[in-house]
Design a protein around this nucleic acid. Structure first.
Lengths: 147, 147
DNA sequence: TTAATACCTCAACCTAACTTGAGGTCAAGT
DNA sequence: ACTTGACCTCAAGTTAGGTTGAGGTATTAA
């Protein structure tokens, strides 16, 4: 039963993406397929996890090239085993934690900065940036606390 | 001293973006400028906060059109006051909280799904999706827990 | 067996968010 | 006065991530 169809239409529907998207991902080297006698794609089940992970990673703002890099720890032609998935997952965990704390910082900065009364334009570094310019040189801005 | 230069080059450097980006944002209606006698842009200081907020919002995956919508509560020609910034900020707070909890769910799902041993391919919904298909119909996938 | 789907490839098109370049003006230092 | 660097506009180019369409082949249900 593992060798059910897993044709491109089935996988697309199952993953909530278009057929053209699967073609596209394959062309980008993010997923792969075998072909049947009539040259139609037949996928191994792990493609579904790959697509799920691609879609999740994209919501974190991770681009396809980075996703591909992360996938590179997985075997190309065989279905990954548990250790291999776990290894890959570990790097996302780190990214996720970073993103989460970035957003928490951002939330707090927004609070502080909007609430601080600095619209008096007397002491806020946003309105009086010279100190910052002097000390840190030109560059990114106060809310931009991290990658 | 508030009426220092605030020319396009200064603001660009201060915000860590290119001059062309400021032109672009102005053309999209996200920021505005006055012109001096020689037709050169002169900004009010609040442009710096606007750009900072644009850049922060983009990290949340928010597009420029949505950012523009959020900015629409601010006065077009005058410098926003504290209440106006705070009103705008409130909507970001909600989005931020949503994003944060999405990521936390995602982190947990990843844990659970990679760690669950379902690569035995016996019981994992990813590998045996028929039940899901039957009960929920085709569509998005297990890791995709929310917007 | 035949009609309706489902697939195939390849090239072109699309939106978002910018960047680059050409051709010309403005402002600041010497 | 003059040169250098900052600005100006407008059009075209770029990257990411897909989507659409044309022209043709496979599979499947009746």
């Amino acid at each position: 039963m593992l060798n059910k169809k897993l044709g491109v239409g089935f996988v697309a529907k199952r993953c909530g993406v278009n057929v053209s998207t699967l073609h596209f991902y394959e062309q980008k080297g993010l997923i792969y397929s075998n072909r049947n006698q009539g040259n139609q794609r037949r996928y191994k089940p792990d493609v579904i996890r790959r697509v799920a992970i691609i879609k999740a990673a994209q919501k974190l703002g991770i681009g396809l090239t980075d996703i591909k890099r992360a996938f590179s720890v997985l075997p190309d032609k065989a279905t990954p085993n548990k250790q291999q998935w776990a290894a890959m997952s570990a790097s996302w965990q780190q990214t996720l934690n970073d993103k989460i704390s970035y957003m928490q910082r951002l939330r707090d900065s927004l609070d502080r900065c909007i609430g601080c009364g600095c619209l008096s334009m007397q002491s806020c570094p946003i309105y009086n940036p010279e100190d910052i310019l002097a000390s840190k040189g030109p560059g990114p801005v106060i809310l931009d606390a991290s990658p």
